[in-house]
Nucleic acid binder design. Structure first.
Lengths: 160, 160
DNA sequence: ACCCGTTGCGCAATAATATTGCGTTGCACC
DNA sequence: GGTGCAACGCAATATTATTGCGCAACGGGT
């Protein structure tokens, strides 16, 4: 397995990040090699876990999730076992799209969706009622100002 | 064009959200119709904008972006023209992966990546030096606790 | 400098998938 | 009961994915 990614690999990642359903023929054309080695590279990137998967990007508003909000959670105990317990709790909440453990003031920040404010409010109550939760602050999003591909790839690795 | 999504459409969205590169043959098998109408539905969903695109999910850590952080920005003026100006600024920052305009205390929250702390610090200085920015608070992420598909779809629309 | 193992390329052939055309069916609305 | 629409699925074709294989480039060891 290739130890280091070359410029063709970076191009592949950038292209698939931009359009994950591009055909391999088109992809190979764009990165400048023929289709078979291109596909082999993609498979290798997938096996290495550098490509973790592919997702369709949906319009959540038009699918009934009008509301998107951040929820910032302070816990009472930050012991590892308690952090783990809270993460397992997060996994079980379907309204939580993304979540991050933070350094500093707030312990977790969660990105949540909900069909309406009432649903969201009762969800916040549920979070608040969760063991080890000290308090929850929320911030409704008014508008998504940017939704860029995961990693900024302009053809060159960030470390040179 | 179908006014309302039926259960097959929801299944398609759920499946493509989970695996955006699934072949149409496999997809059609999973949603229980034959391949041609399945593909036609997918195209329609794309044209309607309900499917906005497809993305490969990359492992940002292993691609050299060790650091992920939130940046919460207070602006001085919240006049529409100033909000728009700041959004255009956001678009030009490649380290910003996602950004949301918020209600309440903070005006914008931005999800940023960087190869290292030094790069991130100088980026924060750049944000701070941006016109109309009152202050920036940052919170480094220690760990991504969840990265779920955009919309929770368990086969049924949220509104019934 | 040469040999040799390794790696990755691309051509060509095959397998699988996407896409189109078309006839049929179910259903709402006269 | 007829008619038009919408969506289905079959079958045919076009396009794409995948595999096998031979060749060229590179690097290490003699």
């Amino acid at each position: 397995m290739r130890a280091h990614l070359d410029s063709v690999d970076w191009k592949i990642l950038a292209e698939l990040q931009r359009d994950g359903r591009m055909t391999n023929v088109e992809l190979s054309r764009r990165v400048g090699i023929s289709a078979p080695p291109c596909l082999r590279r993609v498979r290798t990137l997938e096996e290495q876990g550098l490509i973790q998967g592919y997702r369709a990007l949906l319009d959540e508003k038009r699918l009934g999730y009008d509301l998107m909000s951040f929820a910032m959670v302070h816990l009472i105990s930050q012991a590892e076992i308690d952090l783990d317990a809270f993460q397992r709790r997060i996994d079980q909440w379907p309204l939580v799209r993304g979540a991050w453990m933070l350094s500093g003031d707030v312990d977790f920040i969660m990105l949540c969706v909900a069909p309406d404010l009432r649903t969201f409010q009762s969800f916040v109550l549920e979070i608040t009622a969760t063991p080890n939760v000290r308090n929850v602050r929320t911030a409704l999003t008014l508008k998504q100002a940017k939704n860029a591909p995961i990693v900024p790839l302009e053809g060159a690795p960030p470390t040179g």
